[in-house]
Amino acid sequence: MLTPELTRLRRILAAAGWSGLGLIAIAVMLADFLARAPLGAAHTGPVLAAPSEAFPFGTDLLGRDMFSETLYGLSTTVAQAGEAAVLALLAGGLLGFVCAHLPRPAGNVLRWAIGAFAAIPALLLALAMVALTARGYAGLAAGLAAAPLAFVRAFDRARAAGRLGHAEYARATGISASALLNRDLAYEFRDTLLPTLARALAAVAIILSTMSFLGFGALPPHRDLGLMIAAARTSYLEAWWTVAFPALALMLLILLARLAAGLDEGERP
């Protein structure tokens, strides 16, 4: 049960999460001003310099300022993950709610078809989709790959709500299926819109960065955090900062998105 203390705690954490995401969004928008070097500028300092006052996040193999590169990487990840999260929300959550209100046989067929995709790890699905199209569509692929699970959850939730007393009584007083869908959209979808979006953001940020890490994501020169970490695989054993700061930035983004979703422990880790 949601006690008032737990509800308050959730609100505080969600507010902290959204505030953090807001700060990240501002940092990303001001990336060109905040960065100390242009995107991809090599030899701005010595090669593999440890973090110092001059280079707070150190430099990488090509002497690029890791602070600036992490900022640019974060902005690429945020931009792609944002698009992908909206896509997952619409193609997953919204579609799930709508399909749950279709006539039962049609809804069941759709649930089965999309449920079959949900049985495949989203990462593998996203890799296959990128390989079928092009690397430029990584965000689209991540969003579509995360959608089946969101669809299944929204569908099952709406169907379970439809079996509850209030839906039965509504039907018994002539409230139509479209009016019941309106209820779901006006209450369930609206109320869960922001947390669902935040949860989707966390999920697609993981998928996108993993795709890039495996070589299926962002295209240079627009390096995202996953690609930066992949590129640093040859140097991180000696120069930890080449991986640590992009990884921390990525974890911060995921953590803030999860906090913004509330203390929901339902999402896949």
Binding site: A202, I206, T210, M251, I254, L255, R258, L259, L263, P269
Partner: peptide, 21 residues
């Protein structure tokens, strides 16, 4: 609950690199 969120925020590839390191 918040601690679990923080710990599980690490993507698997980051955990792999940390292990290798």
């Amino acid at each position: 609950a918040p601690v679990i969120q923080i710990v599980s925020a690490a993507p698997v590839f980051c955990a792999c690199l940390a292990l290798a390191y």
